[in-house]
């Protein structure tokens, strides 16, 4: 059955294209941009088009275009790890809480309350900052901080599913709880989970680059969009592109992931729709 959709497939197609390009840069960054980290303190910062630097250079004389290409890796790898890791943690805790209820549910509930009591970015700044920072520490901290929303999501979905008559029927037929979980409940919450993982990739990208911007994520000198913005903040007069380009890249990538997430959710939700 075809119905007219509010958003055509153009937006998700463009988003997918953009993400594939970003993924290519992340995977083969050293091939596409071999001179990303070459410094030239002699030239220092120059504007767009000077000396063959299409987008100019930063204060260390690094080429903005190549640096931005190389930055795709830390912009994708960390957020994807955060989103998947937090969903694994969230799905595990959420299923336990939703299916077993009781004390376990209460414990998991308090855990989510505690972590959600402060905005993730703020808590990440504090924890990552005090623990000494670094990209991977920050990724780990964000994974933990992102998990409560996944826990709540999965728990609510599981609770909603377990009251369905077909779950009652499966129980009465003598099907084991583990099998009911995997075969009857899990597939029906996949759309929610997939969409939320994608949305979390976007949020994690924003959060991680924010931390890098504050100097708590990627180490100094590493190719990272958030870092580039922080370094380029003082160069607005000399080469505005040093901060505008990575800024636009972050916004574009996060928007693409969000659009794709919404689209995937609509599609999957329709295939598993009850009616």
């Amino acid at each position: 059955m075809r119905t007219t959709r509010s958003r055509g497939p153009l937006a998700p197609a463009l988003s997918a294209l953009l993400l594939v390009a970003a993924a290519l840069c992340a995977a083969a960054g050293t091939l596409i941009a071999p001179h990303a980290l070459d410094q030239n303190l002699y030239t220092g910062v120059v504007g767009a088009g000077v000396d063959g630097h299409l987008l100019g250079t930063d204060q260390l004389g690094r080429d903005i275009l190549q640096l931005s290409v190389a930055g795709a890796r830390s912009a994708l790898v960390g957020p994807v790890l955060v989103a998947c890791g937090s969903m694994l943690l969230g799905a595990w805790l959420g299923m336990i809480a939703g299916y077993h209820g009781g004390v376990l549910d209460a414990l998991v509930g308090r855990y989510t309350d505690l972590v959600l009591a402060l905005p993730a970015v703020l808590l990440a700044v504090v924890v990552a900052g005090l623990l000494g920072g670094g990209y991977w520490v920050t990724v780990a901290v964000l994974t933990v901080l992102f998990s409560p929303s996944d826990v709540r999501l999965v728990r609510a979905a599981v609770l909603e599913q377990t009251t369905r008559p077909y779950i009652d029927s499966a129980r009465l037929l003598g099907i084991r709880p583990g099998r009911i979980m995997i075969r009857h409940i899990l597939p029906n919450i996949v759309p929610t989970v997939v969409a939320n993982v994608l949305l979390n990739v976007a949020f994690a990208l924003v959060a991680l680059s924010s931390l890098s911007y504050l100097g708590l994520g990627a180490p100094p000198g590493a190719p990272d969009w958030g870092r580039q913005l922080a370094d380029g903040r003082d160069l607005l007069g000399d080469n505005p592109l040093a901060s505008i380009v990575p800024g636009v890249l972050i916004i574009l990538t996060a928007t693409a992931v969000n659009l794709l997430g919404d689209w995937v959710f609509e599609r999957l939700d329709r295939t598993v729709a009850v009616r």
Partner: peptide, 19 residues
Amino acid sequence: PQRIQIVFQDPYSALNPGL
């Protein structure tokens, strides 16, 4: 399960939509 089984009211939620 050999003893007793049940059929519910709503035909739309009686079956797992994914199977």
